[in-house]
Design a protein around this nucleic acid. Structure first.
Length: 265
DNA sequence: AAAGGGTGCAACCGCGGAGAC
DNA sequence: TGTCTCCGCGGTTGCACCCTT
């Protein structure tokens, strides 16, 4: 195909953005709106490539961006969403208002991964899962792990079904307060002293939080989809779990996970 | 106080999807 | 149907800052 580079690198500035550049970009977007990133730098008087402008806007300049201080609740949610979605940072970010995919990705790689490792958990995003079906909706991203060297989806791919379950609450099953402490597993033994051993407690939270589940697809608005990656005739709910877990051994548990997720939102 | 290593974050890179033509 | 462009995504890198010795 001979894809041309997104921008000629000759004469374009790289590296950290100056406040002057930020101002130029922000002013231009305020006036003209987002989009047309390729032509934006020239029009805005920036010596940057469009991708760089877009990234700067999305991750830093965009109104409503929260920076730093990711709370434990947010961490918890990230872990849970990651267990559901894998490395689909944009989807995860979409569930955390004011957070960017880049920030979440960085936080995951620098903080949460370590925490999980400390807790003896090896996060396994759904690399081995079948790819989610392409939705007609443009917002559907590719499956995590299907990024590099991925082959084009075959035209003969089976027709897929998108499930749109109604949220059903199971609050009694997973009683939950703000910090999800109620999800602590008492099986590991001493949970007698409340709030004393923070590390153990945190690890327990992590152990519960990071539970591999079948793949879910979130759409852009406040609805959610359960995406069947299976053929029309197959009953998604009857399919076995792809990742086995001590915690989730039946379909009801999946619904509970769903409910937890909804409650978190 | 200085050096070295570690950490965290901003930015870049390369790829694929989607749409236009 | 094939090609091209734009856009967005996830993985990776570079570097400034922080911490330890």
């Amino acid at each position: 195909m001979g894809r041309s580079p997104c921008c000629s690198k000759v004469g374009l500035k790289r590296g950290p953005w100056s406040t002057e550049e930020d101002t130029l970009l922000a002013n231009y977007i305020q006036e003209h709106g987002e989009g047309h990133w390729r032509s934006l730098p020239q029009k805005a008087g920036l010596l940057r490539c469009g991708k760089s402008c877009r990234l700067r806007w999305m991750n830093y300049l965009r109104p409503g961006i929260k920076r730093g201080n990711i709370s434990t609740d947010e961490e918890d949610l990230i872990i849970r969403l990651h267990s559901l979605l894998g490395n689909r940072w944009s989807l995860i970010a979409g569930r955390l208002p004011g957070r960017t995919d880049n920030e979440i990705k960085n936080h995951w790689n620098t903080h949460l991964l370590k925490k999980l490792n400390t807790a003896g958990i090896q996060p396994k995003p759904h690399k081995d899962l079948p790819k989610p079906p392409k939705k007609s909706n443009k917002s559907t991203p590719p499956a995590a792990g299907a990024k590099k060297k991925k082959t084009k989806t075959t035209a003969a791919a089976p027709k897929t079904t998108v499930y749109l379950p109604k949220p059903i609450r199971f609050s009694s099953a997973f009683p939950r307060n703000n910090s999800c402490d109620s999800l602590l597993v008492s099986g590991s033994g001493s949970s007698s002293n409340e709030g004393d051993n923070n590390v153990e407690k945190e690890n327990a939270v992590l152990k519960v939080s990071y539970v591999p589940c079948p793949l879910f697809e979130l759409d852009g608005d406040e609805n959610y989809d359960r995406v069947g990656v299976y053929g029309d005739d197959q009953d998604f709910l009857n399919l076995p779990l792809i990742h086995h877990s001590d915690f989730y051994d039946d379909v009801n548990m999946l619904d509970k996970v769903y409910d937890e997720y909804l409650q978190l939102l």
